[in-house]
Design a binder for these strands. Sequence first.
DNA 1: CTTAAGTTGAAACCCAGTTGCAATAGATTA
DNA 2: TAATCTATTGCAACTGGGTTTCAACTTAAG
Lengths: 150, 150
Amino acid sequence: MPLPQTEAPGRLQSELMSRGLRMTHQRRTILTVVETAKQHLDAAQILRQARRLDPGIDRVTVYRTLSLLKRHGLIDELDLMHMQGEKHFYERRPQRDHIHMACLRCGKIAEFESDLFDRLKGQIQRECRFHIVVSRLEVGGYCAECRASN
Amino acid sequence: MPLPQTEAPGRLQSELMSRGLRMTHQRRTILTVVETAKQHLDAAQILRQARRLDPGIDRVTVYRTLSLLKRHGLIDELDLMHMQGEKHFYERRPQRDHIHMACLRCGKIAEFESDLFDRLKGQIQRECRFHIVVSRLEVGGYCAECRASN
DNA sequence: CTTAAGTTGAAACCCAGTTGCAATAGATTA
DNA sequence: TAATCTATTGCAACTGGGTTTCAACTTAAG
């Protein structure tokens, strides 16, 4: 389930520095891992990948960096319908929100962008007078392949 | 944040029994708590409430019953944008899906139904050929009151 | 009333994530 | 370039929601 590689690598780095945060070696490593990830990674996977670049890095630093990135709106946290226990997954925040579809049979995660989704968020903001900062739409069900092979 | 009391009490009980599951005293108690809840409860709150009706009940039984109800599609599990740590919240599955809006300032949870949401799910099913079983749309942001009082 | 299978409670366990704190290392200033 | 200030790191211990194991107990069926 490859993600669209839409932004130039290094975007997150420069984004953080411009916000006055210290750019440490560890943060650079973790940012690189998140930026170049081809699928949704959980904290343990990010740690493992980061250690291949910097063996001394600690899991605490990974957790702290992820929550920093989340607080600054640079990454999004996903649950993917809790199909893999209580793990959380992370992805670079996209320019345009998308929907995550989790197949309850094969476990595949697909993504989908939709005007209707954008319009729905607009409706919420207007009719509920609610200013949206983050949104997350996850659906669980059965993908086309799994429906066919049954 | 009262929830609409749209279904007759006892619905979950009869639903479960009709599926051939044993109706134990503990399950009846937990079902009653979930059915009569006026807001979203987490597992610990459900346990506390259940113990007021049946002091001997164990937290393991609460967890087991909640996952049973979830497996049977009778309740939905919510994260509410992880505003209260990693807790999960539960609500009786409504006839019609709704959106949860979590205010990042006051913590209030509001609900919203929308035709656009239903249409969006229809679009997903058609265009992605994905059969939806559960869906969850949570948004985090700032409610009208919190935006005003600033 | 018997019985077999489903369910419970208690204790131990698991594991993702957090906290406290001393040591370290970015960034800033001179 | 060196001194300094303060954010950040790593380690170890901890937290807490949720799970597993298994003997004892109920429920529903016969």
